[in-house]
Design a protein around this nucleic acid. Structure first.
Length: 360
DNA sequence: AAAACTATCAACCGCGTAAGT
DNA sequence: CACTTACGCGGTTGATAGTTT
């Protein structure tokens, strides 16, 4: 089936719109309303195709368009929605009054995407990219909590940073080290056994999964934990699989847009991880001297270039929301946004049914 | 001062699809 | 059911402004 051209392009103007053309379009739409874009240019006396007119109106001339810099809240909303919807710019724009899909798409590609990359976060999967981190440093700091890993970190050395299999092993070991911190069946975490088991196993989940479908995230987490999906790639361990789909209330999908009406977009957390009245959960600060803390220290040092921006023992501020940093929505710097986003990224939740003290 | 480089964003292009015939 | 039309979407381009060398 051949596709008919949207309009006869012979003699039609292209390129930037002039103020006169804008005025003609505005005047026409004010009189007749938008729509029937095919005939609109002819009726309005414009030498443009209907498509161009529609684009000019929806992206620039519409009176309800909000212009200017994106606020912190808007940016956070975009990131959260993108983690759920992907590149569905129109669906994201529908949640941001006054912003167009084109504007959001541009802002994503020119600002947010780059910032996520700088932070070592894959902008497609929203998962941390361990290949961007200095893993040997992380391993070393983690070894302070678990001397049994010390030899392993030096054993892995710099080459590990470029070997996907070793990266996976390191990731698994780190996650298991975390478990050991939590006194969960230490026998399982004999580093030698792990090394043998993991090296002989092809069942290690990929550490970095480009273009991953969120539905396919099956990274296990300790039973009873509710982990942010973007953490699941960073911290993989055994037992209970989790799908990010579980973290999204799918009860009210908009049939026309396919957009989940209940997606939490105003929460400061990265994605609403199922905290609801039926399943109350608490947000935990990262335990001192834990794997998380050492990872964060390494992460902040190596990726962000500043020290201990996340909650530290000397900082009374909990690591649980963007409000931690009291970011001014209009004057926040790129760095502040990175910090805040990172804090959201690394937040995790523990169900109340679990005694947190058991893990600290 | 000027060339080279980079960032930004308006606009275009092609495709998918719903609605109409 | 086949085909056409119109619209909307997402990816990409290119002009321009700003910055660096």
């Amino acid at each position: 089936m051949g596709r008919a051209p949207c309009c006869d392009k012979n003699g039609l103007k292209k390129g930037p719109w002039t103020p006169e053309e804008d005025l003609m379009l505005i005047n026409y739409i004010q009189k007749h309303g938008p729509g029937n874009w095919r005939n609109l240019p002819k009726n309005a006396g414009l030498q443009r195709c209907g498509k161009s007119c529609r684009l000019r109106w929806t992206n620039y001339l519409r009176p309800d368009i909000k212009r200017g810099r994106f606020s912190f809240e808007e940016e956070e909303t975009i990131i959260q929605l993108h983690s759920v919807l992907g590149n569905k710019w129109s669906a994201i724009a529908a949640r941001l009054p006054g912003r167009t899909d084109n504007e959001i798409k541009n802002y994503w590609n020119t600002h947010i995407r780059k910032r996520l990359l700088r932070m070592g976060i894959d902008p497609v999967t929203h998962a941390p990219r361990l290949d961007f981190l200095d893993l040997s440093s992380i391993l070393a700091s983690s070894s302070l909590c678990n001397p049994s890993l010390l030899n392993l970190s030096s054993l892995l050395g710099a080459q590990a940073l470029f070997n996907p299999e070793l990266l996976r092993l390191a990731s698994t070991l780190l996650s298991l080290n975390n478990k050991q911190d939590q006194n969960i069946n230490p026998e399982l975490f004999n580093s030698q056994n792990l090394q043998e088991n993991q090296l002989c196993s092809n069942q290690i989940p990929p550490l970095v999964q480009p273009n991953i479908n969120h539905d396919q995230l099956q990274t296990p987490i300790p039973e009873g934990f509710s982990m942010q999906p973007n953490m699941t790639n960073l911290i993989s361990s055994s037992s209970t699989p989790i799908s990010t789909q579980e973290n999204v209330n799918t009860s009210a999908i908009n049939p026309s847009s396919g957009l989940n009406e209940n997606v939490a977009v105003s929460q400061p957390s990265y994605v609403d991880c199922g905290s609801n009245t039926n399943n109350p959960s608490v947000v935990a600060d990262l335990p001192e001297n834990s794997f998380f803390q050492s990872l964060l220290d390494g992460y902040s040092d190596k990726v962000f270039g500043f020290d201990s921006v996340i909650s530290t023992p000397s900082s009374p501020t909990p690591l649980n929301s963007s409000s931690t940093y009291n970011v001014n929505s209009t004057s926040s710097t790129e760095d502040e946004r990175e910090i805040s986003y990172c804090s959201s990224l690394l937040k995790f939740e523990i169900p109340e049914s679990l005694d947190i003290n058991d893990f600290l």
